[in-house]
Amino acid sequence: MKPQDILSGKNSLWIFGYGSLVWKPDFKYKRSKIGYITGYKRRFWHGDNFHRGDDEMLGRVVTLIEDDDVCTWGVAFEVIGAQMEECLKYLNVREAVRGGYVTKVVEFFPRGQEESPVLALVYIATPDNPIYLGPATAEEIAAQIIVCKGKSGHNIEYLLRLAEFMRTTCPDVEDTHLFSIEAAAVALLPMLLGP
């Protein structure tokens, strides 16, 4: 689905973030909500040669993998009026052009049972992307993350900020994949830094 198709006849749009968008949206929005989507799991399976790595050393960032039995927590941002077009132009460059992500529409469930779900746009990197890296062990992913850096900063900052978001904002949610990579990276750092 193309972003412009989503805009037709609407005066507001929700964008779901599950990676760096949770702490750094970099676009104007009306409000944000913590919540989750179902049918997808977050994985550090996508390469990054711009924000958190380069062509010589790809960083690792998250994407979503279809899995009926799980949910992924993050933040949905509501953009309204002129914000919609500005936001989609910005995200098209940040996520699609530079990141290789495609757009999908998903059902977002805000935290709190009194809230109704809303449809939200999400960016997902797929295995047919040339810099898609696929699965690896937590240790292999961590070893790659701690040595990579891109135009937006060190890859480990991305990992640690995402883990901190989950720990502080969704303390009851266990994200085993994320936390196992964080633990592996923290264990590897002393070896990298030396005595």
Score class of each variant (00 low, 15 high):
A187T: 04
T126L: 15
E95I: 05
L188N: 05
E182A: 09
K33E: 15
N92W: 15
C87P: 01
I181M: 06
K151T: 15
E56L: 15
H154K: 15
S12H: 15
A120V: 00
E78W: 04
T38E: 14
Y36S: 14
H177I: 02
L88C: 01
S8T: 12
L193Y: 03
G100A: 05
K10M: 01
A82Q: 14
S20A: 09
G53Q: 06
I141W: 02
Y36D: 02
F44H: 04
P190W: 11
Y123K: 02
K151F: 05
L91S: 02
I131L: 08
V102I: 09
H46N: 08
S32C: 13
G112Y: 07
K104Q: 06
G74M: 07
C170T: 13
I124M: 08
L88H: 01
E78K: 09
I34H: 12
I131Y: 09
V186E: 10
E140F: 01
V79K: 03
R43P: 00
V173F: 13
P117N: 07
P25E: 11
S8H: 13
E114L: 13
I141N: 11
V79L: 04
R31W: 03
T72K: 01
P110I: 07
G194C: 12
C87R: 08
G35L: 06
I37A: 01
T72R: 05
K89D: 12
F109D: 04
V61P: 00
M57H: 13
A142E: 06
K24L: 14
E85R: 07
I80R: 11
Y101R: 01
I80T: 15
G99P: 03
C87L: 10
I15M: 09
D54K: 14
S12R: 15
Y40E: 02
E157Y: 13
E114R: 11
F50P: 01
I80W: 05
A184F: 08
D175I: 03
V173P: 00
G59W: 14
P117E: 14
V62E: 04
L121H: 02
G99W: 11
D55Q: 13
E56N: 11
V186C: 02
P3F: 08
R60G: 01
E164M: 07
E86D: 15
L189V: 15
Y101P: 00
F108D: 01
P25R: 08
I15A: 05
H154Y: 12
A184H: 09
D172N: 12
T103R: 09
V186A: 07
A143F: 05
T38M: 07
I65Q: 13
P171F: 07
D128H: 14
